[in-house]
Deep mutational scan, measured.
Amino acid sequence: MFYPNSPQTSPQLTQIPYGQQYAMMQRQIQQPYHPFATTEPQARLYPYHYQGPIQQEQGGFITQQSTAASPQYVQMRVTPVDQSIMSGYPNQTANGSSSSSFNYNIHPQQQQQQQQQQQQLRHHAMPVGSVPLQDDRYRKQLIVNYLAPDVTSTDLHELFSRFGELDGARIIYDKQTNMSKGYGFVYFCHAEDAKEAVERMSGYEFHGKWLKVGYSTNPLNIVPSNSSPYVHAGSRGAAG
């Protein structure tokens, strides 16, 4: 039997160049792979992502010199942007860049009308829970959420009447099932009393439920100042 490094198959040491006398086997001759043993700084910083320098080929596509990437890492192929796409944008300079302001050559009167329309939209648009300043009635009506099913309009009136005089209180019921929808409205005579009720009743436990109280901004629920107070009856038909 002959071994790869046996004296019968191995040459004389004098015939082997210096430095390879003890590297006779194939696994010894093959050098191990060192990912950080390279002179390129990109490979030292990113050993798993770097795959060699990027070269520009004919046709405008950018390719990489090395083989496919590892399945664990996804390499994105980048193509140059066609400058003709950006030619339609206004205020574009000769080098292809555009300024931040756009001039669509709008007539001054049209621009003024658009600004007025935007101001009107901001004036009428009102986020949930906010209180408008032009109508004091919005500051007097509250919406009470997360009410228990057994709470009546009379219970709601008695709960909030300790903060001040009320114009009314009612629970909203479903017309088909005649069941409470879980929320109601309270109408105060003074805005200061309503503000105190919002601050003190939010998070209050009532009939096993934690109440959420806020201003009601729905104009359909506003009680006119010259109208008669609501009837605080315990029956659902009268309260709904």
Rank of each mutant, 00 (worst) to 15 (best):
Y73Q: 12
Q42T: 07
T152W: 04
G208M: 05
Q58I: 15
P71W: 14
N5M: 12
R137S: 13
E57K: 01
G240R: 12
A197T: 01
A197P: 08
L156F: 09
L159V: 04
M126H: 03
Y104F: 11
E192L: 03
L133N: 06
F163E: 01
Q42S: 08
P71E: 14
F188M: 03
P53N: 09
F36A: 09
V74A: 00
V223L: 04
G88R: 07
T14R: 14
L159H: 12
V144D: 12
L159I: 14
R162S: 07
D135C: 01
R77M: 15
S216V: 03
S70W: 14
Y22P: 01
H207V: 03
Q114A: 09
S227G: 07
K181W: 02
G237W: 00
Y73M: 00
S202W: 06
Q176N: 01
P108T: 11
T38W: 15
A169W: 00
Q56C: 00
Q119F: 15
P11G: 09
Q83A: 04
P132F: 15
R236L: 08
T154C: 09
Q26P: 14
A69L: 09
G182D: 06
Y22T: 04
G164D: 05
E192Y: 14
G129A: 08
V186T: 01
H124A: 11
Q111T: 06
G59M: 02
P32K: 05
F61Q: 03
G164C: 04
I143L: 04
Q118E: 04
F206I: 03
W210D: 01
V131M: 08
Y33F: 07
N105F: 13
D167W: 00
F61E: 04
A94Q: 02
P41D: 13
H34Y: 14
Y50W: 12
R122T: 11
Q119N: 04
S6E: 07
P127Y: 01
S66M: 01
Q65T: 02
K195I: 11
I54F: 07
N178A: 02
P35C: 06
T154F: 08
N226M: 00
L220K: 08
Q176H: 13
C189L: 06
H49C: 10
L159C: 04
H124E: 01
T9Y: 14
H190D: 13
A238N: 01
E196M: 05
Q141E: 00
C189Q: 06
V223K: 00
F2R: 05
Y138L: 11
Q8A: 06
N91W: 11
S97K: 10
A238Q: 14
S97F: 03
L121F: 09
R77Q: 13
G60D: 11
E196K: 14
D174N: 13
G164N: 04
Y138F: 13
R77F: 11
L147A: 14
R236Y: 00
M25F: 02
T63G: 08
I143T: 02
Q58K: 09
G129S: 11
I172D: 10
D155Q: 02
E192N: 06
P41W: 01
V231Y: 13
R162F: 12
P219Y: 05
D174A: 03
V74R: 10
Y48V: 10
Y48I: 09
Q115I: 13
Y48T: 07
A43W: 15
Y89K: 14
D136Q: 01
P17S: 13
A37R: 06
V128S: 10
P108W: 15
Q56H: 02
Q92C: 15
G96W: 02
D167L: 08
M201V: 07
H123E: 14
D150V: 10
D174S: 06
Q109V: 02
F2Q: 08
I16M: 15
I85W: 05
D136S: 01
N145L: 02
V213Y: 06
A43V: 11
D155R: 03
Q12L: 07
G214C: 09
H190Q: 13
G60E: 04
E158A: 09
H123T: 01
H207T: 04
T154H: 01
